[in-house]
Design a protein around this nucleic acid. Structure first.
Length: 162
DNA sequence: GCCAACGTTGGC
DNA sequence: GCCAACGTTGGC
Protein backbone atom coordinates (compact mmCIF):
# COMPACT_ATOMS: atom_id res chain seq x y z
CA UNK A 1 0.00 0.00 0.00
CA UNK A 2 1.46 3.32 -1.06
CA UNK A 3 1.64 6.12 1.45
CA UNK A 4 -0.72 8.92 0.51
CA UNK A 5 0.79 12.16 -0.69
CA UNK A 6 1.46 14.67 2.06
CA UNK A 7 -0.58 17.80 2.51
CA UNK A 8 1.14 21.12 2.86
CA UNK A 9 0.53 23.78 5.48
CA UNK A 10 1.82 27.07 6.70
CA UNK A 11 2.17 27.63 10.44
CA UNK A 12 2.43 31.19 11.62
CA UNK A 13 4.34 32.16 14.73
CA UNK A 14 5.65 35.25 16.42
CA UNK A 15 9.37 34.59 16.77
CA UNK A 16 9.35 36.39 20.12
CA UNK A 17 7.25 33.54 21.52
CA UNK A 18 8.53 30.66 19.38
CA UNK A 19 10.80 30.74 16.36
CA UNK A 20 12.30 28.29 13.91
CA UNK A 21 15.59 28.72 15.73
CA UNK A 22 13.97 27.26 18.82
CA UNK A 23 12.90 24.31 16.69
CA UNK A 24 16.35 24.02 15.14
CA UNK A 25 18.00 23.77 18.53
CA UNK A 26 16.81 20.18 18.76
CA UNK A 27 16.71 18.99 15.17
CA UNK A 28 16.22 15.34 16.08
CA UNK A 29 13.38 15.91 18.46
CA UNK A 30 9.68 16.49 17.93
CA UNK A 31 8.08 19.51 19.49
CA UNK A 32 4.42 20.06 20.17
CA UNK A 33 2.74 22.93 18.43
CA UNK A 34 0.54 24.21 21.21
CA UNK A 35 -1.43 27.30 22.04
CA UNK A 36 -3.70 27.49 18.99
CA UNK A 37 -6.87 29.13 20.31
CA UNK A 38 -8.90 29.71 17.20
CA UNK A 39 -11.64 27.31 16.16
CA UNK A 40 -10.89 27.29 12.46
CA UNK A 41 -7.23 26.52 13.08
CA UNK A 42 -8.23 23.98 15.73
CA UNK A 43 -10.39 22.13 13.24
CA UNK A 44 -7.49 21.86 10.82
CA UNK A 45 -5.17 20.57 13.54
CA UNK A 46 -7.72 18.09 14.81
CA UNK A 47 -9.13 16.81 11.52
CA UNK A 48 -6.87 17.54 8.59
CA UNK A 49 -3.21 17.72 9.51
CA UNK A 50 -1.70 14.24 9.12
CA UNK A 51 1.56 12.54 10.01
CA UNK A 52 4.04 13.15 7.20
CA UNK A 53 2.47 16.44 6.16
CA UNK A 54 4.89 19.27 5.46
CA UNK A 55 4.82 22.65 7.10
CA UNK A 56 6.19 26.07 6.21
CA UNK A 57 7.42 28.05 9.16
CA UNK A 58 6.35 31.70 8.85
CA UNK A 59 7.37 34.45 11.25
CA UNK A 60 4.89 37.27 11.80
CA UNK A 61 5.37 40.59 13.56
CA UNK A 62 9.05 40.64 12.82
CA UNK A 63 11.57 41.91 10.34
CA UNK A 64 11.73 40.53 7.77
CA UNK A 65 8.34 38.87 7.47
CA UNK A 66 9.24 35.59 5.83
CA UNK A 67 9.12 31.83 5.60
CA UNK A 68 12.20 30.70 7.45
CA UNK A 69 12.14 26.97 6.85
CA UNK A 70 10.14 23.76 6.98
CA UNK A 71 9.01 21.06 9.35
CA UNK A 72 7.34 17.68 9.19
CA UNK A 73 4.31 16.51 11.17
CA UNK A 74 5.28 13.59 13.41
CA UNK A 75 2.06 13.15 15.38
CA UNK A 76 -1.47 13.96 14.36
CA UNK A 77 -3.91 16.10 16.36
CA UNK A 78 -4.30 15.33 20.07
CA UNK A 79 -5.62 17.38 22.98
CA UNK A 80 -3.59 20.45 23.88
CA UNK A 81 -2.83 19.91 27.56
CA UNK A 82 -1.57 23.47 28.01
CA UNK A 83 -5.25 24.50 28.04
CA UNK A 84 -5.61 22.66 31.37
CA UNK A 85 -2.81 24.46 33.19
CA UNK A 86 -4.10 27.55 35.03
CA UNK A 87 -0.57 28.83 35.48
CA UNK A 88 0.40 28.55 31.84
CA UNK A 89 -0.28 31.32 29.39
CA UNK A 90 -2.56 29.14 27.27
CA UNK A 91 -5.08 28.21 29.95
CA UNK A 92 -8.72 27.89 28.97
CA UNK A 93 -11.14 27.03 31.80
CA UNK A 94 -13.70 25.72 29.28
CA UNK A 95 -11.38 22.87 28.31
CA UNK A 96 -11.24 19.68 30.41
CA UNK A 97 -9.54 16.31 30.16
CA UNK A 98 -12.89 14.67 29.34
CA UNK A 99 -13.87 17.34 26.84
CA UNK A 100 -10.76 18.94 25.38
CA UNK A 101 -11.48 21.94 23.21
CA UNK A 102 -8.03 22.63 21.83
CA UNK A 103 -5.69 20.43 19.85
CA UNK A 104 -2.06 20.34 18.90
CA UNK A 105 0.25 18.32 16.65
CA UNK A 106 3.92 17.39 16.93
CA UNK A 107 6.41 18.63 14.39
CA UNK A 108 10.09 18.13 13.67
CA UNK A 109 12.47 20.36 11.77
CA UNK A 110 13.16 19.53 8.13
CA UNK A 111 15.37 22.47 7.25
CA UNK A 112 16.11 26.08 7.98
CA UNK A 113 16.33 27.98 4.69
CA UNK A 114 19.78 29.47 4.03
CA UNK A 115 17.94 32.71 3.25
CA UNK A 116 14.36 33.27 4.38
CA UNK A 117 11.79 33.73 1.58
CA UNK A 118 10.40 37.13 2.39
CA UNK A 119 6.78 38.20 2.17
CA UNK A 120 7.89 40.92 -0.23
CA UNK A 121 9.51 38.36 -2.50
CA UNK A 122 6.40 36.21 -2.38
CA UNK A 123 4.21 39.16 -3.30
CA UNK A 124 6.19 39.56 -6.50
CA UNK A 125 5.43 36.02 -7.57
CA UNK A 126 2.25 35.70 -9.63
CA UNK A 127 1.90 32.02 -8.90
CA UNK A 128 1.70 32.76 -5.17
CA UNK A 129 -0.87 35.51 -5.35
CA UNK A 130 -3.74 33.31 -4.12
CA UNK A 131 -1.97 32.31 -0.94
CA UNK A 132 -4.13 33.03 2.07
CA UNK A 133 -1.10 34.46 3.81
CA UNK A 134 -0.81 37.29 1.33
CA UNK A 135 -4.42 38.40 1.60
CA UNK A 136 -5.08 41.49 3.60
CA UNK A 137 -6.27 40.76 7.10
CA UNK A 138 -5.49 37.06 6.95
CA UNK A 139 -5.16 35.99 10.56
CA UNK A 140 -5.52 32.23 10.41
CA UNK A 141 -2.45 30.71 12.05
CA UNK A 142 -2.73 27.33 10.29
CA UNK A 143 -3.20 27.69 6.55
CA UNK A 144 -3.40 25.18 3.72
CA UNK A 145 -0.76 25.44 1.00
CA UNK A 146 -0.84 23.86 -2.47
CA UNK A 147 1.92 21.61 -3.79
CA UNK A 148 2.69 24.24 -6.46
CA UNK A 149 3.17 26.84 -3.76
CA UNK A 150 5.31 24.41 -1.82
CA UNK A 151 7.56 23.84 -4.84
CA UNK A 152 7.72 27.47 -5.87
CA UNK A 153 8.81 28.65 -2.45
CA UNK A 154 11.54 26.02 -2.33
CA UNK A 155 12.75 27.30 -5.69
CA UNK A 156 12.81 30.84 -4.32
CA UNK A 157 14.73 29.59 -1.29
CA UNK A 158 17.23 27.88 -3.59
CA UNK A 159 16.92 24.55 -1.81
CA UNK A 160 15.62 21.07 -2.54
CA UNK A 161 12.03 20.31 -1.72
CA UNK A 162 12.26 17.75 1.08
C1' DG B 1 1.82 53.79 16.25
C1' DC B 2 -2.05 53.21 13.29
C1' DC B 3 -5.77 50.84 11.84
C1' DA B 4 -8.27 47.16 9.05
C1' DA B 5 -9.97 42.77 9.57
C1' DC B 6 -11.49 39.40 12.24
C1' DG B 7 -13.16 36.77 16.38
C1' DT B 8 -15.51 36.80 20.75
C1' DT B 9 -18.59 38.44 24.27
C1' DG B 10 -22.68 39.80 26.25
C1' DG B 11 -26.96 42.60 26.55
C1' DC B 12 -31.32 42.57 24.71
C1' DG C 1 -30.45 35.11 17.28
C1' DC C 2 -28.90 39.81 16.46
C1' DC C 3 -25.47 43.05 16.71
C1' DA C 4 -22.66 46.61 19.09
C1' DA C 5 -18.68 46.83 21.76
C1' DC C 6 -14.50 45.20 22.63
C1' DG C 7 -10.10 42.62 22.14
C1' DT C 8 -6.50 40.71 19.20
C1' DT C 9 -3.74 40.01 15.16
C1' DG C 10 -0.55 41.55 12.24
C1' DG C 11 0.80 44.28 8.02
C1' DC C 12 2.12 48.77 6.96
Amino acid sequence: MAASAPNYWLFKTEPSSYSIHDLAKEPKKSTFWDGVRNYQARNLLRDDVQVGDRVFFYHSNTEPLAIYGTAKVTRKGYPDHTALDPKGGHYDPKSTTENPIWYMVDIKLIQVFPEPVTRERMQDEKILKDMMLLKRGSRLSIQPVTSDEWKTIHKLAGVDDR
